[in-house]
């Protein structure tokens, strides 16, 4: 009994704890090689990383903790950013290429098929004031800014493909930096011009029943000799006006977020506006190519409206017959082709 008692004495609570710890340590040592082996399996690691990222994700981002004032810097990974980057690099150039090159091709085909739209009755020699000096100033202010904005913007999407191989990285980088400055700062006079355009031309650009008739007749530009009546602006010009106003407004709002990126609540909101800015820009440029075409080589006598401000009376009668009547009635002039300049306003 004394022997058995001494045996029991060995297994006190203290020794039991020690034995348990030793067993756990042994278990850990035995288990460790298996865990180490698992960490070298690429597939298993990928699963673990995926689970880790999912566990860390809050909302649309994977975030960490930071102590600097900019709380947005806590975003570590934004999975949607990969889709956004793919859009910018692959789909956007396709959209832009199709829209812009497609428009150039359409205009070239139109020019070859229809030819230049002539003044059917020839130039009369009489002039009528179509746009006052201030209107032309606003037009050219907006247009000149738009051209620089368009070229510098296209450089972002296509410069790496088209310009970099031609001039090399140094020239391309310097040019792109200055183009970015021009883009950022000329955006402001562009927005000013946009607002002024809206204010001075809105009253003549309200759509009406007359526009439907103009559209039904294809504006008279599809075949010679047809001239649907129009007031100061026909349906086509009204379309361009609203494309400029709505497109310009979207470009301005989205561009504001790009110039001041931290106005956006989240990086997802910022990405949304960059996509809007880029897509509208491509469509906007394509539409303006059509506007530039019809206002220059596409239609004889059209450029004078924004060039000198005065157009030939026969041109005005063919394309804006009702407007000419209104102006001549205001001035008390006869409705024939008597050479006389009539103010538009």
């Amino acid at each position: 009994m004394p022997g058995s008692l001494s045996f029991l004495k060995v297994f006190t609570p203290k020794t039991s704890i020690l034995t348990l710890c030793a067993a756990m340590a042994l278990l850990f040592v035995l288990a460790h090689p298996a865990a180490a082996q698992l960490s070298f399996r690429p597939t298993a690691e990928a699963v673990q990383e995926d689970q880790l990222l999912n566990a860390l994700q809050r909302g649309d981002k994977i975030t960490g903790r930071i102590t600097i004032p900019d709380t947005r810097a806590s975003s570590l990974i934004q999975p949607a950013g990969r889709d956004w980057r793919d859009f910018q690099r692959s789909r956007l150039p396709i959209i832009g290429g199709v829209a812009i090159i497609g428009m150039v091709a359409l205009l070239a085909i139109f020019l070859m098929v229809r030819g230049r739209i002539r003044v059917d009755h020839g130039f009369s020699g009489a002039k009528i004031l179509r746009f006052a000096g201030f209107e032309r100033f606003i037009h050219w202010l907006t247009a000149s800014c738009f051209i620089v904005l368009a070229l510098s913007g296209l450089n972002i999407s296509f410069g790496r493909i088209l310009i970099l191989p031609l001039f090399g990285p140094d020239v391309f980088a310097t040019m792109s930096a200055y183009a970015k400055f021009a883009h950022n700062y000329l955006a402001f006079p562009f927005m000013l011009g946009l607002v002024m355009m809206f204010l001075i031309w809105i009253k003549d650009n309200i759509p009406g029943k007359l526009d439907l008739e103009w559209i039904k007749q294809g504006g008279g530009i599809l075949s010679a000799g047809k001239h649907p009546p129009a007031k100061r602006f026909n349906a086509g010009q009204k379309g361009i006006f609203w494309i400029v106003i709505i497109g310009g407004a979207l470009m301005s709002v989205s561009g504001w977020f790009l110039i001041f990126p931290y106005l956006a609540a989240t990086v997802t909101v910022l990405q949304f506006w960059t996509v809007i800015h880029a897509v509208i820009a491509m469509l906007f440029i394509a539409a303006m190519l059509a506007h530039i075409y019809i206002g220059s080589i596409g239609m004889e006598g059209a450029f004078d409206a924004m060039g000198t401000g005065e157009v030939d009376l026969n041109w005005a009668k063919e394309h804006h017959a009702l407007w000419v009547e209104e102006q001549q009635a205001k001035a008390g002039a006869p409705t024939d082709s008597t050479p006389r300049a009539v103010p538009a306003e």
Binding site: F137, W140, S144, Y185, F188, P189, G307, G309
Partner: peptide, 23 residues
């Protein structure tokens, strides 16, 4: 032509002014 030149000049001046204000 004068109107066009004036518009371009105004655009440049306005852009420089905005750049100075923002900076």
């Amino acid at each position: 032509m004068k109107v066009f030149v004036a518009a371009v000049a105004f655009a440049v001046v306005a852009a420089v002014a905005v750049a100075m204000v923002l900076n």
